[in-house]
């Protein structure tokens, strides 16, 4: 569910980044906001639903990670709100300066959100000091922790970890580039803007950067976390996830030759989905690794809710999911095609 959220809200973050760096003309900006107009707040509903499901299925993980990652999570909330303000406020007053300010606010908030999501992934991969162990003694219960935004050395292997270090920043950049490509694909799919050809070139070039970053982060990952590829040797079927990622990545090099405008979007979605699944597979069954030897990592088994609750939950969850897919299907069917053709008008 979280992966779906990232794919969906990811494209509107990406569109925001594209907006920040590529859209120079008023017409292009209009095209971009039209492309995400009727979708962005529905996409954010996925975040709420993912949070809710995490809450009921894995209460311990929810409690541990939300309080431990307190500061970045609250900042993500602020950015989400700020971004919405920018998007809505911009068109209210027709004044050059006003529009520029809110354009930048919208773009920068989108950029930071993409960066933060990458950093978040980095933190999960790297692990945290569960129980806040110091000199071999836990200061808190075994599954609680708290991370400051950074430590003085920005190092992922220091004793006192921070949210932001050079490793998580690296993954943050992966997040930014990925979502930029993803957002550009969405714009190409949803508009007839003059920007589209320029964006295809940009995707092609950014894809090289992405490839380089992915290789770099895998190498670094190998250095700082023990045995990241262990699971793939033990369970060869898991190779399907990295393969999915690679298909997405290499598919995007052919962006200029696609006959249909939606294909690029499918490839970038594959890349994101595959990336998430590969990461999860690599740390499985852990969901939040411990960096100390005193307290065990949080795993899928020790954070789940009780059995009765889960078995009831799965029933309504399946019903809800079917309904949900139906809604999304209806919604995208009604708004199919290019948004500038539909011209959904003022908000």
């Amino acid at each position: 569910m979280l992966a779906i959220y990232v794919i969906l809200d990811g494209y509107d973050f990406g569109a925001g980044i594209v907006h920040l760096f590529f859209a120079k003309k008023e017409k292009d900006k209009k095209a971009i906001t039209n492309a995400i107009g009727p979708f962005w707040d529905a996409n954010e509903v996925w975040l709420i639903a993912s949070g809710g499901v995490l809450f009921f299925a894995f209460p311990t993980l929810y409690a541990s990670s939300f309080s431990g990652f307190y500061l970045p999570l609250i900042m993500i909330l602020w950015l989400l709100i700020f971004r919405a303000i920018g998007l809505e406020l911009r068109g209210q007053i027709h004044n050059k300066l006003w529009e520029t300010v809110w354009d930048k606010a919208f773009g920068i908030a989108s950029f930071l959100l993409a960066l933060f999501f990458g950093i978040a992934l980095g933190n999960v991969v790297r692990g945290v000091n569960l129980g806040m162990v110091e000199n071999g003694i836990s200061a808190h219960e075994a599954h609680y922790f708290f991370l400051p935004l950074w430590n003085p050395t920005f190092s992922p292997s220091a004793e006192h970890l921070g949210i932001i270090d050079w490793f998580t920043i690296l993954l943050g950049l992966v997040g930014v580039i990925t979502l930029t490509i993803h957002g550009a694909n969405w714009i190409i799919y949803k508009t007839n803007s003059d920007l589209n050809n320029k964006l295809k070139t940009a995707i092609f070039r950014l894809n090289f950067v992405l490839l380089a970053l992915v290789i770099l982060s895998l190498v670094v990952w190998h250095v700082i976390a023990p045995k990241p590829f262990h699971n793939f040797i033990e369970r060869p079927w898991m190779w399907i996830f990295p393969l999915l990622t690679l298909t997405g990545l290499f598919g995007l090099f052919k962006v200029k030759t696609f006959k249909k405008d939606g294909i690029g979007f499918i490839f970038s979605s594959l890349f994101i989905l595959g990336g998430f699944a590969s990461t999860a597979a690599s740390i499985f069954p852990k969901v939040l690794p411990s960096t100390n030897t005193v307290n065990p990592s949080l795993t899928i088994y020790n954070v789940a809710a009780d059995e009765y609750g889960l078995s009831v939950g799965i029933n309504w969850f399946i019903i809800a999911l079917i309904l949900l897919i139906a809604y999304v299907f209806i919604q995208y069917k009604v708004f199919k095609g290019k948004m500038d053709d539909i011209g959904y008008g003022e908000h």
Binding site: G52, F55, F56, P59, A63, F66, G313, L323
Partner: peptide
């Protein structure tokens, strides 16, 4: 619930998580 009331969430999440997640999944999406 998670950031500021973690202990409460951990202890009661199996129950109030149900109704809160249902809110997101059923009504909010609708």
């Amino acid at each position: 619930f998670g950031t500021n009331w973690a202990k409460f969430s951990e202890l009661t999440g199996g129950i109030i998580g149900q109704t809160l997640a249902m809110e997101g999944m059923f009504s909010f999406f609708l």
